[in-house]
Design a protein around this nucleic acid. Structure first.
Lengths: 339, 339
DNA sequence: CTGAAAGCGCTAACAT
DNA sequence: ATGTTAGCGCTTTCAG
């Protein structure tokens, strides 16, 4: 089916080494021979067999990318950037999804290891997964986590400054004069959510206020329930801080349905920007994450480590600082700012 | 670094064949031996080397996925579904992006071929690419195109019913009584866009009206220009039909900025649904595509062909019909419907 | 039930 | 400048 290197050699009337030399840059090959070999390659439609090269001990030129979901805009943007870096390093990019399930994640990593990928970019679903860490550490394969670290694992992580951003967003609401600010979320087992809650609480506490976290909102349905509950409370909140994209949108939809004035009756800031945040009325103030940067930096780090692996001491490899990428508060109308 | 099969064999005090049998299901192996081998595998943390297996002639258990962009919600949803199918077939899923550039695309396919992927799912950027087709046909590797076919290539395609959907959307506007309906787009070299224009034109012509296609709208800037032009024309359009997601959003934004009443002054239908179409005011009527289905069906088809490849005649392999998946017109407020 | 040995396609000494 | 040869880790006849 696929012609082999030795078939090319026969056709060109040379040895296999010569062909090998040609396909690897053609150094130290007589121009005439070179031409003849290239001609044979062309004629046969020869393409080096990757597997054979790998077997010989080379790199697979494949990196693994393990994320909760490809359809999630955050991770797909990340993936886009990481893929570009992989490509620039002459590598392909294998994506496996976990749905935030530890078992699926373990299975994904196992698959990648069998495939002998050169390295893995991973958004772990659990911030303390001993099994995973043990498996990862068994092989000397570079791993970098994205968006979420694995605590105490020594695995380098590229993350954003969740708690700082969250704190500053909360402060922004406080500066608008709101006091009863509710933090709205779910999935509190995630590192990012925990950090964001932490930042919110810090800001509130420092302002001498009592933090109030509603961890029950996931979709429109649960958002409806929560909104109803707040509105009927004696001291209804003045502002909402939603901790992720889909939560922000669900809450917005419900507020709109109930005809609640934003920011008049209830102000809103959301963590994570989204495509139409600017076009909605009111436009939604958000914390914008440097998504592509996360993917790009993580991938670049990975290839850098890969390069180190090839030449030098594995000792110098584990002293990476966690990269903390900067987020940005983008003020639009929903927080009470004039725009 | 990675323990090998023969290391396991030594440790278990058996031959390599026996170990091979164990990792391939453990048939015809004495239970006691089996246990011993499994123990050795466990102890060593052994994992079969994929490359070696491939070299022996096996499948790579890898499929390639070539799309314009991962960040595009359409293709990322597609990818999510296809990845799941790959996973279910014990295969990994390698993504390469083309940015709709033929050269990048060719390069992507070449990389995948070198990696000896078992098959390719491809959204070709060009509907008549001889070079690509020739390359693809050289190796007997199953390829299925998604979203866009390559005309006359004999490559099976999984697409949606673009022209029919477009026609019915146009008809819907006509039924609302609009006569001056402008079709708004760009990138007319794409198959999908061509089909959509075709459907629009058919509906208009059949209604005895003159089709009017504006092929200059790409982003907010170009949308602004076009909107200004229409409004200042003696007979301004009554309705707009935008042919893709980002166009719809750009146009919506501009109309909103100009304070134009939708659908009062200008009705709107967009091709392709988007996350907030329902939440915008007015909510936007769209043609909804079965995105995940495209990915899923294409992947399933691919694995089906792969299965055929393994056992039987390559002749029976090319008799697939193009799969045409059904889209749906989702009426919301922007077309003039009451919701 | 088990093992010895050949070889998948390639690269890298080591000759020449 | 070019060829010979020995494996890389695995599967797979073919013999026990």
């Amino acid at each position: 089916m696929h012609p082999t290197l030795s078939e090319v050699a026969v056709r060109a009337g040379v040895g296999t080494t010569t062909v090998s030399r040609v396909i690897n840059g053609g150094l130290n090959v007589d121009p005439a021979t070179l031409a003849r070999v290239q001609h044979a390659i062309e004629a046969l439609g020869y393409m080096p067999n990757h597997a054979a090269r790998i077997l010989k001990g080379g790199r697979t030129r494949t990196i693994g990318f393990v994320i909760p979901s490809i359809a999630d805009p955050f991770f797909s943007s990340c993936a886009e950037a990481a893929q570009a870096v992989a490509r620039a390093n002459d590598s392909v990019f294998t994506v496996l999804t976990t749905q935030n399930d530890s078992k699926t994640e373990l299975d994904a990593v196992r698959m990648l290891m069998r495939h002998r990928v050169d390295g893995i970019l991973l958004a772990p679903c659990n911030s303390e997964d001993d099994v995973l860490v043990k498996m990862l550490s068994k092989v000397a394969m570079p791993v970098i986590t994205i968006d979420r670290p694995i605590r105490g694992s020594g695995i380098p992580a590229v993350v954003t400054d969740n708690s700082r951003a969250s704190k500053s967003a909360t402060k922004h609401l406080l500066e608008h004069g709101f006091k009863r600010i509710v933090c709205v979320t779910r999935e509190t087992h995630l590192y990012t959510i925990q950090e964001r809650i932490k930042g919110y609480k810090e800001a509130m506490t420092e302002a001498g206020l009592v933090p109030q976290v509603d961890t029950s909102v996931e979709d429109v349905e649960s958002a409806t329930k929560s909104v109803e509950k707040w509105l009927s409370s004696p001291e209804p909140p003045e502002a909402l801080f939603t901790l992720k994209n889909s939560t922000t949108i669900a809450v917005f939809e419900v507020l709109q349905k109930f005809g609640i004035a934003i920011p008049g009756q209830l102000a809103l800031i959301g963590y994570d920007d989204f495509q139409l945040a600017e076009i909605l009325r009111p436009s939604v103030t958000v914390i914008q994450q440097p998504i592509e940067q996360v993917g790009r930096v993580a991938a670049e780090l990975l290839f850098q480590r890969l390069a180190n692996f090839e030449q030098s001491s594995p000792d110098g490899l584990f002293d990476w600082e966690n990269e903390q990428l900067k987020t940005k508060l983008v003020c639009r109308a929903s927080c009470g700012c004039q725009v």
